[in-house]
Design a protein around this nucleic acid. Structure first.
Length: 576
DNA sequence: GCCGTTTTCGGCCCGACTGTTTTCAGTCG
């Protein structure tokens, strides 16, 4: 479907192989950067090449290799390298403490070409015979193998969210700690997290106090300003935590550095160097004299570029935008006036209307769309038409005395032939109709189902369009361009499902959709009170895709929203 | 291998920690 990911994998392997062979480190970097860029493109790489669009980081040579892949399905250089290096070496290099150099020595001196052999060599102690290998290194490799099996996993951000907050709170409570911030991929809101990065401002050494935490297992390193350990999550799995401690005057520069991404940092530091500065985690310097770094804002100001929000620091084109002051004001959670996907007791939720109202009031919302499942989705308590009518009556009555408007809504199943699960005369009575797909046959392409459903004038929103579950289920097979194009023509809104398991659309797809000039809604898919808290995740996803308040319909007031939906429906009816 | 109004050749982000070392290489982020 999309060759970006496949080519990115190949480039990554070429980089590993070249590193193993001791090739030019900058060449290795070029392959890694290109791999990273490919993974974050909105369109298939062939589209850019066809249009003759230059992509920063992919030069003539790599372009040729990409074309070679598109034509033949493989890249000769890759095949050659694979034939030279045993497969198992690539796994060995993924083990902590083992880099290309160690892997090479192990291979050349002892013939270690897979993890099983490595385990045996470690047990036998033969390792110690090699020059430069001591007891400690042996112990580290042993630990590395263990960690490789336990730590090589990435977790959906929502799954570890509370653990991370708990750890932050613990650190905040240590005496001498002035500031604590969660940085790294957590601050950038990547949908999965591989390790936790924490930045601390403190004048005194607090390492010992931190390491008293009972959930800390192995300590990997412990210095004056940097400690690293494995931490037991509430699901009993382990995650690596890296902590850095800096002084007040370095706080901003350190925040920038540890928030990353790595690719963003490299680009920003190169830019700083061009202007005659040196930027590192301690501050921004000219001729080795400290000029600033207390806050992020200060550093950006010295560089004479716009402040770049953490969520978009992914090394895409954000620095170019910042140079021209073209980053718009991103949507904030305080812009949100209501939630557009909530389930009540009428389907598989557990909340009464008054409970929903109470939560909405806490969040200062004007409205909530009650979007219970439709009849075919039996597993989720889908409502028969009579139940829906009864529920609607009840909502209307509730609204007479409610401070929060409950919208008559439904999450209506798109059936296998693309028709909707309720007849039009029922849909017409609803304030808002979300259409979605939950039942998909193996390998089924659902594009046509969507396109057919989108012909119906009462479909206002497509909910969780790709159906993916973070880390657990791949997106359904579908042609997103066709869906986005249709959504644009028919004035159908695309949902950003904020539930941390879904985050659907995700940032890359939102960026892609935006080019079709569509609007978005953010819905939490709340089934219980805690569910409303997911809104923050949806907002972060929207920010990652540089969305503003104007892009998102639930920043509208109640009256504005109702008239907006009506206007879109009129457009669809007149088109038909 | 990429990139460029100081360069088409010669640069390429920058620093912490560890281990096996007598001044540094390897790994990591």
């Amino acid at each position: 479907m999309n060759s970006n990911h496949l080519i990115a994998k190949i480039f990554e392997e070429i980089a590993d192989a070249l590193e193993f062979l001791g090739d030019n480190p900058f060449k290795v970097r070029a392959y890694r950067t290109a791999s990273y860029i490919l993974e974050s493109l909105e369109e298939d790489i062939s589209v850019y090449i066809q249009k003759g669009e230059k992509i920063f980081g992919i030069g003539e040579d790599l372009k040729e290799k990409i074309l070679e892949f598109i034509k033949t399905g493989k890249i000769k250089k890759h095949e050659e390298l694979l034939s030279k290096i045993p497969r198992g070496i690539f796994d060995i290099m993924k083990i902590p403490y083992i880099g290309p150099k160690t892997a090479k020595t192990l291979y050349e001196e002892l013939g270690v070409d897979n993890i099983e052999k490595l385990k045996k060599i470690v047990e036998s102690g033969d390792l110690l015979r090699i020059k430069g290998f001591g007891i400690k290194k042996l112990e580290n490799i042993k630990k590395g193998i263990e960690l490789y099996q336990k730590l090589s996993e990435r977790y959906p951000i929502g799954e570890i969210y509370q653990d991370v907050i708990n750890l932050k709170n613990y650190i905040s409570s240590i005496s001498g700690v002035q500031k604590v911030e969660l940085v790294g991929s957590f601050r950038r809101f990547k949908e999965t997290i591989g390790d936790i990065d924490i930045l601390i401002c403190s004048e005194k050494n607090i390492s010992e106090d931190i390491l008293k935490h009972p959930k800390i297992k192995d300590i990997f390193s412990k210095g004056d300003t940097k400690i690293s350990f494995s931490y037991e999550l509430s699901n009993t799995r382990l995650i690596q935590v890296d902590i850095r401690v800096v002084e007040e005057r370095s706080w901003g520069a350190a925040l920038m550095y540890f928030t990353g991404s790595k690719e963003h940092n490299i680009l920003l530091r190169e830019f700083a160097a061009e202007k005659g500065y040196k930027l590192n985690e301690y501050g921004i310097f000219r001729d080795n004299i400290y000029i600033g770094g207390r806050s992020e804002e200060e550093v950006y100001k010295i560089l004479e570029i716009q402040y770049i929000p953490p969520e978009i620091r992914e090394g895409r084109n954000e620095i170019e935008l910042a140079k021209k002051y073209l980053i718009p004001k991103l949507v904030e959670i305080t812009d949100i006036k209501g939630d557009l996907q909530v389930h009540s007791r009428y389907s598989d939720g557990i909340m009464d209307f008054w409970e929903i109202e109470a939560e909405a009031l806490k969040l200062n919302y004007e409205y909530i769309a009650i979007t219970d499942h439709s009849k075919s989705l039996k597993v989720a308590g889908g409502m028969e038409v009579e139940d829906l009518i009864r529920r609607n009556k009840e909502i209307k009555k509730f609204n007479e005395n409610s401070k929060v408007k409950l919208l008559l809504g439904a999450e209506v199943e798109i059936l296998s032939d693309g028709s909707l699960d309720y007849p039009d005369e029922i849909l017409e009575q609803l304030d808002i109709v979300l259409a979605s797909i939950h039942n998909v046959r193996k390998d089924e392409d659902i594009t046509e189902r969507y396109l057919k459903a989108m012909e119906n004038p009462f479909v206002d929103i497509i909910a969780h369009p790709t159906g993916r579950l973070v880390s657990y289920r791949e997106p359904y097979k579908l042609d997103l361009d066709a869906i986005f194009k249709k959504a644009s023509e028919r004035k159908i809104i695309l949902e950003i499902n904020a539930h941390y398991n879904r985050l659907d659309l995700n940032d890359i797809n939102i960026l892609k959709a935006k080019r079709y000039n569509v609007k978005f809604s953010i819905g939490t898919d709340a089934h219980n009170r805690n569910g409303f808290g997911m809104m923050g995740f949806g907002i972060k996803m929207a920010k990652k895709a540089i969305l503003t308040k104007e892009d998102i319909i639930n920043t509208l007031s109640y009256e504005e929203l109702i008239s907006f939906i009506k206007e879109c429906r009129r457009h669809r009816i007149s088109e038909k």
